[in-house]
Amino acid sequence: MHSFNEDGELLPEEIDTINRLTKIPIHSLNLDAILIATNIYRIAQGLRNKMEREVLSQYGLSWTAFSMLYDLWIWESIETKKLAQSAGVSKATISNITKTLEQKELCFRKSDIRDKRMTYVVLTDKGKQVMEELYPQFHKGEIEIVSGLSVEEQKSMETLLRRLIRENDF
């Protein structure tokens, strides 16, 4: 019923979680669901911290600013509402980060000609250049994160995570 490491043991954090939660009178406690969600969160936070510390800090970028630049690099121009959804933040946060990125001359805003209520964020040539320099370093970190898994394990995890994303509309 519990998640174990490769030696068949729970991780210390999982033991602490189980010890705390099994004392709570919850009738249908699903420890596997708790451990999966907790470990996904820990991996996401660890990835974010590693990349901010080892790669993004060199460019003066936060995780969210990088996420925005990445989306702009892929799509070149994107409406602020869609950008906020993609980054998982509010339009106000997108607005604040866009101001910072505009000061660095990495992007600019433009209004839709037909509908002035819609604003797009557009990647500049300098923004494209930064992403072309930055992304290989970022990708190296991605590879390091999963290097302890076999190719088969990586494919399996990729499939399962994609399924969770689809089923939960993330």
Rank of each mutant, 00 (worst) to 15 (best):
I15N: 01
I145D: 08
L56I: 10
M118D: 09
E153Q: 12
V130W: 07
I43W: 05
V146S: 12
K110D: 14
M118R: 15
M1D: 15
I97Y: 13
E153A: 11
D115L: 06
S28R: 02
S156E: 13
K128P: 08
L31E: 02
H27D: 13
M131T: 08
K99D: 15
R20Q: 07
D16C: 05
L21K: 13
V55I: 14
T22Q: 05
T22G: 05
K82C: 00
S28Q: 12
Y135R: 07
E167I: 04
I43T: 13
E79R: 14
N39Y: 01
A37Q: 09
T119Y: 04
W73Q: 04
R163N: 12
S86W: 02
V130G: 01
S95N: 14
I40N: 03
D115N: 15
I40H: 05
V121I: 15
R166L: 00
I24E: 12
A65G: 06
T100S: 09
K104C: 03
L29A: 03
Y120W: 15
Q154Y: 04
L11H: 02
F138M: 11
T38H: 14
S62C: 02
R117Y: 03
T124V: 08
Q137A: 12
N30R: 06
E52M: 09
Y135M: 07
L35I: 06
R48E: 06
V130F: 14
I113P: 03
R114P: 00
G127L: 01
Q58S: 08
G88C: 11
L61G: 00
I165M: 01
G141M: 06
S28N: 10
K140A: 11
S3V: 12
S3Y: 14
V151A: 00
K91A: 11
M157Y: 03
K104L: 04
E14F: 03
I18N: 04
Y70G: 00
C107S: 08
F170I: 09
K128D: 10
P136M: 14
I74A: 08
L56E: 10
L31H: 03
L21Y: 13
E6T: 02
Q137H: 13
I15W: 04
R163D: 14
Q137F: 01
E9W: 02
M131G: 03
N96I: 02
H139G: 00
L21W: 11
D112N: 15
S77D: 09
T159Q: 02
L56T: 08
W75R: 12
I74L: 07
E102T: 15
T100R: 13
E14Q: 10
E105D: 14
M118W: 10
T80N: 09
K91I: 14
I36F: 00
T98I: 14
E132H: 04
L10I: 03
A37H: 11
V146T: 13
L134Y: 04
D115T: 08
L106W: 11
E153T: 12
